[in-house]
Amino acid sequence: MKQDTDMNRRRFLGQAAAAAGLTVAPGVMLYEVQARPADQAATSKQRWGMLIDTSKCSTGCTDCVTACKTEHGWGSTETKSNAEQQAQWIRKVKLTDKQTGHVQSLPLMCQHCETPPCVDVCPTGASMKRADGIVLVDKHICIGCRYCMMACPYKARSFIHEPLMNQKPHAPRGMGTVESCTLCVHRVDNDGIPACVESCNAKGHKAMYFGDLHDPNSEISKRLKEFGGEQIRADLGLNTGVRYQGL
């Protein structure tokens, strides 16, 4: 059965890779890595991560969310589900300090933990973490039990409550399974960066950085070294791949 699982995973990732070749905005080079040949598995040489500078993220802006919707095709596909049932892979959160009234804004999505609770609890292993740190759901073996959603401290996952049509080939989705941010694995595997980061930078906000946390020379590592970066719910010790500045 193990073999089957692997097959399924490969099929899923294969579909993801097929639609890749999507263009990365010219001039956006926030990372320096070699593209991994398609026949090679992801390795732990890299650990993909993201850094979000909350001071640059403005309250009204939803460019990253829009980019994610366009990229993966969520947001308008669910017509029967109510607002609380519709999927959201990434959302903007507004924080107001109870004491000072200071307002902050930040995007929140799957934090791609090093020790993800969703992977621990998933009975079938559909929730998985790739060697390079990207946390994914294999929709072929997800039974839709939603235990991972119960376990996620960030409410990053969505369950699909109705039949879906016209999905993007690189983002298979389906009724009765769970989904969440893939860190745009189909782009990353082809030397690209996630759609949200690309859009945030293209629009000139420059609040999001993507790169290899294991490479000390990547921009994200340098920034983390210089300015630090906090984890949401650091108390849980999950060592998240997504970090925030100015929380």
Partner: peptide, 20 residues
């Protein structure tokens, strides 16, 4: 379950870390 017809998956593929 979201996919009750995949019960066979749940019965055959185990993630031994999962209490489920």
């Amino acid at each position: 379950l979201g996919q009750p017809d995949r019960l066979i998956v749940a019965m055959t593929i185990y993630n031994f870390k999962s209490i489920f």
